[in-house]
């Protein structure tokens, strides 16, 4: 560790001294008499040691270890790692697409996301929504719904018919939280 640092430091200093010989006659650094604007010392990138050496492996793995990685049934083996089928996938009951365990179905959620975005866009005054938010419950009324008047609620009308999958009763009867 320490020897590596010393070698790197020595390399850089050698390069600096070599380049300074073109500018100044003596190898010492003379910063006092240097002109301010015309010449500046810049070391090119090739003079620095290549840093990608640090990322490579230091020691060659033995043939025993390589064969274990290829052919054994331990979890470190590549065949076990990439060759076993996944057991944590579920099928959606609504549409039949596959999704991971713990997550919701992406195909069904796409539909809901588009509908929520359309409902947000149908709000008439966007400046009011973003800066002076209404202090009432917002109710979205579709075209084929029953119209009602309530002063305590903000009613927003949508010029479309209610989708068939979007039920009117938003409060669930059964506790369906996961």
């Amino acid at each position: 560790m320490l020897s590596n640092l010393i070698i790197r430091y020595r390399l850089i200093t050698d390069q600096l001294i070599r380049y300074s010989q073109f500018l100044f006659s003596s190898p010492t650094f003379a910063f006092v008499d240097m002109p301010t604007t015309t010449t500046t010392i810049t070391t090119p990138k090739s003079s620095l040691p290549d840093m990608s050496i640090l990322l490579t492996q230091k020691h060659r793995a033995t043939i025993e270890r390589r064969r274990i990685r290829r052919h054994s049934d331990l979890p470190m083996s590549l065949m076990i790692k990439y060759g076993t089928p996944r057991q944590d996938l579920h099928q959606c009951l609504e549409c039949g697409t596959w999704h991971e365990k713990k997550t919701i179905c992406g195909n069904c959620y796409d539909r809901i996301r588009k509908e929520t975005q359309a409902m947000k866009d149908s709000y008439p005054n966007k400046d009011e929504f973003n800066h002076n938010h209404p202090q009432q419950e917002i109710v979205y009324v579709y075209k084929n719904d029953e119209k009602f008047h309530d002063d305590t609620k903000r009613i927003v009308e949508i010029q479309r018919e209610r989708p068939t999958w979007f039920s009117k009763n938003l409060i669930p009867k059964i506790n369906t939280t996961k």
């Binding site: 509908e115 929520t116 409902m119 109710v139 999958w165």
Partner: peptide
Amino acid sequence: DNPYPRIIPDPR
């Protein structure tokens, strides 16, 4: 209890 459609579908 927001006004948007429910994420978990209705109980069957």
